[in-house]
Computed example of a mutant assay.
Amino acid sequence: MDYEISIEDETLVAAAQEIIRKRYEWERHHVSAALRTKTGEIFTAVHLEASLPRVTVCAEAMVIGKAISEGYKDFDTIVAVRHPDPDSEDREIKIVSPCGMCRELIADYGRDCKVIIMQEDKLAKTDILELLPMRYSR
């Protein structure tokens, strides 16, 4: 976790928060992700909740697919955020760490991609491979 959080990183977090504010729907979309390419384009997406949990598609997968579909494949930084449930007392949209499957997917498509996470109640940025120690080789 040795990368400084830049204004561009804060803008990326804000983009993820903005899209989930706009697209939040109880039991449908409560996580979003924002991805910045190495040339500065920002993509956002929400996750797709399904009644059969294994069919659910994470926001990180959605945003990677969106960027690739638009012709971008050189990824710089990604972040995911979660909207609170309607009955939650804490109404803050918080950064969440990618799940194991998303860590694998990010590493597959952006081997040197950085990930913004929370560490000790503050923003931190790390290499995806730091979040995926002893990863198998492709």
Rank of each mutant, 00 (worst) to 15 (best):
G65K: 07
A16V: 02
C58W: 11
R28K: 10
L12N: 04
E92C: 05
I116K: 11
A16Q: 04
D85M: 14
I106R: 01
E49Y: 05
I93L: 08
G40H: 04
A80L: 14
H30F: 08
I106L: 01
M101R: 14
I7A: 12
R91A: 09
A124P: 09
H83P: 05
I7Y: 06
K66Q: 06
G71E: 04
A107K: 10
Y109P: 00
Y72P: 00
I78L: 15
V63Q: 04
C102K: 03
D9M: 03
A59V: 01
K66E: 12
K66T: 06
T56C: 05
K73H: 10
K94E: 14
A33S: 08
R135C: 10
M118Y: 13
D90A: 08
W26R: 10
K73M: 10
A16G: 05
L132C: 10
Y72N: 11
T11Q: 13
I5Q: 06
K94Y: 07
M134G: 15
D108M: 12
V46N: 02
I64A: 02
I93N: 06
K73W: 05
E120K: 13
K38N: 04
R138V: 12
S137L: 15
A15N: 07
L52D: 14
R82T: 10
I19L: 04
V79K: 10
V55Q: 12
I64S: 02
T39I: 12
M118S: 11
S137W: 13
Y136R: 15
D127G: 07
T39N: 12
I5C: 05
E89Q: 08
S32T: 01
K66W: 01
K22P: 00
I68V: 09
K73C: 07
T44G: 02
R91K: 15
I7V: 13
A50N: 12
K114H: 11
L52I: 15
Q17N: 06
I128A: 08
